[in-house]
Design a protein around this nucleic acid. Structure first.
Length: 879
RNA sequence: GGGCGGUUAGCUCAGCUGGUUAGAGCACCUGCCUUACAAGCAGGGGGUCGCAGGUUCGAGUCCUGCACCGCCCA
């Protein structure tokens, strides 16, 4: 074989030149493409996470997407036909919020569409308080802007993925707002509806007043907030009184009951009677409940529609009336005391007080109500004192927020669609157990979440940029919709928008007319669509349906914080639609923490931009960093590791040049040291393959790196350097060169998933032509069978003994301040009786490595080491 | 308050089913231009493995409790 002409290669490897060149070649060769003709058992299928397109590019993305690519590249070299798509999750609130910020606009669904509307971008440096009032635009204009923004964001992500060298099949690209995804999400809805898993109900739901939308349990987070207990005196119908404590005095008008613990002696006598509220003088029932905590506040509390989740429960269990005072926009709505459902013992007083808070926000209303409570005239009793007892007592308490919102969640009653899951907890837990979780303890998180689920999955959102719920409603003579019997489209009409397409059996002119029809205005929760990523990838019930070939998938890579959402909903969908698991494995990446072990986030200002990182160190070095972190483990961001990765790339380049530039005769691997080295190499292959099979890529990297740097370049290569040029030993020379090439070929392939550019560069110099395989990334992963023709060493310790012997020489040279290449006049080994016979088998290579012709070996005390060396340097002329 | 994970060298991390003197890289010190690589090579110093008990011939590893950090949930 022709050696590589080293002088023709650049002295240094330049990633910024090589990486784009190799990416173009991989694309041209199509080595990342899925081949639909090959059978399932040869295929490896990835359920790639679709990143939130309007989210910021983050080092965390680079980290976790590299992890999945490592697994994919390993499987590709194992000969698997890879299905590795990429989607963009672009519908939903993050996009809407970005559009609002980028263009300073708000949407009003009642505004007419303006086809030629031009909206200017806001200077991103403008402070929020300096911005003019947002421009109000129609819903359709707003959606147009969403498409513009997401298209830009997707390009940014795609560029990043390409820079990083992800081996994604770009033929399999989709967006969760495109027609394929919309059609499949709507099909999912129809299928679940037909199977009886979906219902809609007028029910209290958690509501974000700023976004004006319902939110699901999974989107809620608790935040610690300042609040205050207000002690308020109520009356009783027989002239008595008691004091309740509440943090929400503004909801006094929504009070529908009074509750205390059944064993609480203080209030036992009140159960069954009516209480009279102050300010409005509304009679409400007093009832016992185990859920009341006698230690909290005064032990007796007011039940409102609705202050929190337990209010909802009491409202249901006690069949209490509904008195909703808060509107969808978070403002207090109007109503009249004295009317049905708003009975009062003094309607005039009630109306006068209530009128003061109508149209106010929650905080304003609270202040007004507290002032009203200070007035004796507002007592529940004709001759009582001020209902507010003492001053409000401050406290810290957990308040529920929508995770993307800034105002506390309220509970409002409105019509929402739900997927029934609470009756399927056991089945869903069992499904989770049919999946292998990496690391295994993550499966417990899934089970805990599923077991503690408290609400069905609310899937409707009152948003604009999302997948429309495919339903119409008949309107009665008054124009009121009949929600009990929705009209659903047939499957051939999907994807569709009920707000623009006409319900079957009606004319478009009947939209919104009495006796006509109305479209469902709501869209799906974004998880409703993204939980179908396997079905979208496999094109469920669409042209080119490959569900039979691609479902269930092999692996779902994702972050551990979305086990309760993405993993959970995907498992639920697969269970309900297909009675199966969506995939056989889940691999969970950890998080990137900043050096202070805090989660990196935009708000902390500690985010490192991934593009700058890739430009500075190169993709191979960045991938090295990601590959050195185990699955599931949170990792502190450490720029030192990039430098280590970059050095590895340089080392590979130089070692590759050296090995492949050796000229010599072709030949068998015969020498003892060479056979012993091959035995070590074979063991490395077995260990790294086993590690990858368990998704433990970081162990594979560590083993390969240690072997390459220490065993291969520092030891084997130095031991045989002289022999590769030995004119008088053609057979030994051929053996050394063959071993070097085998060692390089194998380690390059073991490194290939981690550092794809440099390894393919080295591969291209001779191995590509030799094997007929263009790219290392479609070459065979090394296996033990490759070494079957090479005889085992006479002694399994030969390689270790040779390394220890040369180490003893180096130590002696260092102690004398000599350079490693300094020729020795004499070299004398002392060693233990067991090791000396082994040393004799490799003594020629050791002597060559030490650069001496005169080596002696004696048994002697070595002070715990295998060998010690005594050396005399050859005299050197002064330079 | 519950669940899960973590705590090993100055820093970032390995250490798989308990078994010689606890490892690596970075950083630090010393020496070396050696025909692939000074972005390199060689040698060296540095750890009572969070704390307290327990099981065992033997514990970084298993058990109990505690402390601190993180995530998820209530």
């Amino acid at each position: 074989m022709q050696p590589v002409d080293v002088s023709a290669l650049p002295r240094r490897f330049e990633p910024e030149e090589a990486e784009p060149r190799w990416r173009a070649l991989w694309d041209a060769w199509g080595i990342h493409s899925y081949d639909p003709a090959r059978p399932r058992e040869e295929t490896f299928i990835v359920d790639t996470p679709p990143p939130t397109a309007s989210g910021s590019l983050h080092v965390g993305h680079v980290f976790s997407y590299t992890h999945q690519d490592l697994i994919v590249r390993y499987q590709r070299m194992r000969g698997r036909n890879i299905f590795y798509p990429m989607g963009w999750d672009d519908n939903g609130l993050p996009t809407e919020r970005r559009v609002q910020n980028v263009f300073n606009v708000r949407s009003d669904p009642f505004m007419p569409y303006e086809p030629d509307l031009k909206v200017e971008r806001v200077d991103p440096n403008t402070k929020p308080r300096d911005l003019p009032r947002p421009t109000v635009i129609s819903r359709r204009n707003f959606i147009d802007l969403c498409h513009i923004v997401t298209a830009e964001d997707e390009v940014a992500f795609k560029d990043l993925w390409k820079m990083l060298g992800l081996s994604v099949d770009w033929n399999e690209e989709y967006a969760t707002i495109d027609d394929r995804s919309r059609g499949i999400a709507q099909l999912s809805f129809l299928d679940l509806y037909e199977k009886g898993h979906i219902y809609q109900v007028e029910a209290p739901t958690m509501w974000d007043i700023d976004f004006a939308t319902a939110v699901a349990q999974a989107e809620v987070e608790d935040r610690e907030r300042d609040g205050a207990f207000h002690d308020i005196e109520f009356g009783t119908e027989d002239g008595g009184n008691f004091v309740i404590s509440t943090t929400r005095p503004e909801l006094l008008a929504a009070c529908v009951g009074i509750a205390a613990h059944p064993d609480d002696e203080r209030y036992r006598a009140l159960f069954g009677k009516k209480a009279i509220s102050p300010v409005y003088r509304v009679p409400v029932p007093i009832f016992p409940t185990e859920l009341a905590d006698p230690e909290k506040g005064t032990g007796v509390l007011m039940v409102c529609t609705f202050g929190d989740q337990t209010d909802v429960q009491w409202w249901r269990e006690e069949s209490l009336p509904l008195r909703q005072v808060l509107g969808r926009d978070g403002l207090i709505v109007e109503h009249r005391y004295g009317a049905e459902g708003w009975e009062s013992n003094d309607p005039d007083l009630a109306n006068a007080n209530y009128a003061e808070i109508v149209g106010k926000r929650v905080n304003q209303a609270r202040r007004i109500v507290v002032e009203q409570l200070r007035e004796a005239s507002n007592s529940a009793l004709e001759d009582g004192g001020a209902p507010l007892k003492g001053e409000p007592r401050p406290l810290k308490h957990a308040v529920r927020f929508y995770e993307k919102g800034d105002s506390p969640l309220e509970y409002l009653t409105n019509r929402q669609w739900f997927v029934r899951l609470l009756d399927k907890k056991d089945e869903l837990i069992e499904r989770g157990r049919q999946i292998t979780w990496h690391p295994a303890y993550m499966g417990k998180r899934y089970e805990d979440w599923t077991a503690t689920l408290g609400l069905d999955w609310g899937i409707s959102r009152q948003r604009y940029f999302g997948v429309q719920i495919p339903a119409w409603y008949r309107l009665d003579d008054q124009g009121n919709p009949d929600y009990s019997d929705p009209i659903l489209p047939t499957r051939d009409l999907l994807p569709m928008d009920p707000m623009s397409s006409t319900a079957p059996g009606f004319e478009e002119s009947q939209r919104g007319q009495p006796g006509g029809f109305a479209g469902e205005p709501d869209v799906f929760d974004t998880w409703f669509t993204s939980s179908l990523s396997p079905q979208i990838g496999a094109r469920w019930d669409q042209d080119g349906d490959k569900m039979d070939e691609l479902f269930p998938m092999d692996v779902r890579p994702q972050a551990h914080d979305i086990i309760r959402t993405w993993a959970f909903y995907t498992i639920a969908k697969a269970h309900l639609h297909h009675d199966d698991v969506p995939w056989h494995n889940v691999v969970l990446s950890g998080w990137i923490l900043d050096p202070d072990r805090k989660k990196m986030s935009k708000s902390r200002g500690n985010v490192v931009t991934p593009v700058g990182m890739l430009e500075e160190y190169g993709a191979d070095a960045v991938r090295y960093w990601a590959g050195s972190a185990r699955l599931g483990a949170d990792t502190a961001f450490d720029e030192q590791v990039f430098r280590v990765g970059k050095r590895l790339v340089t080392k590979i380049y130089n070692a590759g040049k050296f090995v492949l530039s050796q000229e010599g005769p072709e030949g068998e691997i015969t020498n003892e040291l060479d056979r012993a080295f091959i035995a070590e190499l074979r063991s490395l292959v077995e260990r790294t393959t086993a590690a990858f099979e368990e998704y433990e890529y970081s162990r594979a990297l560590e083993e390969t790196e240690t072997f390459f740097w220490s065993a291969f370049t520092d030891n084997y290569l130095e031991l045989v350097k002289k022999r590769t040029r030995a004119e008088d030993d053609p057979q030994g020379r051929a053996s050394a060169i063959a071993t070097l090439r085998t060692g390089l070929s194998v380690t390059m392939r073991l490194f290939a998933p981690f550092v794809p550019t440099i390894t393919d560069e080295v591969w291209s110099w001779t191995f590509a032509e030799q094997t007929g395989v263009q790219s290392i990334h479609v070459a065979d992963w090394p296996s033990a069978e490759e070494f079957t023709g090479i005889p085992a060493p006479d002694n399994t310790e030969s390689f270790a003994v040779a390394c220890d012997a040369i180490a003893a020489v180096r130590k002696a040279k260092t102690e004398l301040g000599l350079g490693m290449g300094r020729p020795l006049a004499t070299l004398a080994f002392q060693g233990d009786a067991d090791s000396l016979p082994v040393l004799s088998r490799v003594i020629t290579d050791v002597s060559d490595g030490a650069n001496t012709a005169a080596t002696s070996v004696t048994e002697g005390d070595t002070g715990g080491e295998r060998f010690t060396a005594t050396i005399v340097a050859e005299l050197q002329e002064e330079k």
